[in-house]
Design a protein around this nucleic acid. Structure first.
Lengths: 233, 233
DNA sequence: CTCCAAAATTGGTCCGACCACTTGACCAAA
DNA sequence: TTTGGTCAAGTGGTCGGACCAATTTTGGAG
């Protein structure tokens, strides 16, 4: 047998993965501050330059935010997409079309396979959207969570990844200029109504209904964009 | 008054951008080797640690390939996506399921909207897969190009992005261990046959047929994985 | 209590050193 | 000539320490 051809990954990668693991384990929560570089080096038993290299790698990946003289902070999920950006120059309408396809299927799968925990997460996200829009906030983060939690309920992590990537395309230039003009109060009410139909179909395990409801939501969103696109531009 | 509201970007970023510029200017071509870290530090008038931080940033971004004891090389455009890897921990079967959904739709759209140039690209990629497998090469790159060019023929750049991301998930650990065991000669023949059916449906503008052919290809691939999974493991 | 300057904290950069790995030249044996 | 191994130079990997610059906190003056 071929005795393990050791693959001694470079130290900075090991450290980066370790820190990344601590974050996803909830050891350091988004927005919180990491220990100073010197302390991290001591804790992990490596030198400060190595820790710095790992921190730079994580910073490039958009996971950390380094502030001189202050400290190192875990990036907020909402801001995370901005930096990653993923070359995608996809326009809003292309993204909506792709979401129509993928999220429709996610909703159908979720209706089939979602367990109690998944349903609870979806309901919670739904409630958060309502809460945010009530206080006249733009419920972007909550909305993202809603769609992602449905994808997670599908049980397919690849689909979750795609939903996240598509959502984060909103950070693109075309998207932003469009987003700026939407009237939140009215739009939020429609969004909530459509979300409600999706949740309802999922909890009653109606796969076809969930897919239809999600696709309807996407079509309506598409139309809202069209409206702003033709009027504003 | 503070006459320069200097925003002194961090040194490693400046260096990274400078090196990145040299590459895009053709100063260093893909595959070529950069000067040693020590020389770069001297040329740019900075310390070696700073150069290292810049190199790590560019490595994380997938632009460079660092080989211990040998040197630092400019990544080939074809390999660039592979290294980015995107946190996706998705297993092979989840990825295949997602590809079934997305690429099936891409094939259908391609059959509807592909123009002469798109068809030519698809045919060329198809031919490249055949060529590669004939000479007993693992036609991974050509296969990728085949699927991506179909996505491009769909006219939706968001779908192209997703297809690329899913393909690049092959670089994950689970995928690799599986990939290692597939028998190429036999598998390649099946792959080519299935590809042929897809191309045929697209060129005759048969959207339904294209979707079916692509989904069949994915199902067959799924079964090939199953076979190796149960036997090898 | 307010305000400002000094001190402590923290990241930024640099230097010099030594280690591990890769590569290629060189030499000896078949 | 070909093969195989050794060895030295080149290169990235890691380390510890030092000092600088920006920020935050502290504590005293008013």
């Amino acid at each position: 047998m071929p005795l393990q051809t050791v693959e001694p990954r470079r130290l900075y990668r090991q450290i980066a993965d370790q820190i990344s693991g601590l974050i996803s384990d909830g050891e350091y929560t988004p927005g919180s501050r990491l220990p100073p570089e010197r302390d991290l080096a001591k804790q992990l038993g490596v030198s400060r330059p190595s820790v710095r290299e790992a921190l730079i790698a994580l910073e490039v990946e958009g996971l950390l935010d380094v502030r001189v003289g202050s400290g190192i902070y875990v990036t907020q999920p909402g801001e995370r997409g901005q930096r990653n950006a993923l070359q995608g120059d996809s326009g809003p309408f292309e993204v909506i079309r792709a979401r129509w396809l993928i999220e429709g299927e996610c909703a159908a799968l979720a209706a089939k396979t979602a367990g109690p925990a998944q349903l609870r997460a979806i309901r919670a996200a739904h409630a958060a959207v309502i809460e945010e829009s009530k206080r006249d906030h733009n419920p972007l983060d909550a909305d993202r969570l809603f769609h992602v939690s449905i994808a997670e309920a599908s049980g397919n992590s690849a689909l979750v990844l795609l939903v996240q990537i598509l959502w984060d395309q909103r950070m693109g230039p075309l998207y932003r200029s469009l987003e700026r003009k939407l009237e939140y109060p009215k739009m939020a009410a429609e969004t909530v109504r459509e979300h409600k139909a999706i949740v309802s179909a999922i909890v009653r395990h109606d796969a076809r209904g969930a897919r239809s409801a999600m696709r309807l939501h996407m079509n309506r969103t598409h139309n809202r964009y069209i409206k702003e696109w033709t009027s504003g531009k």
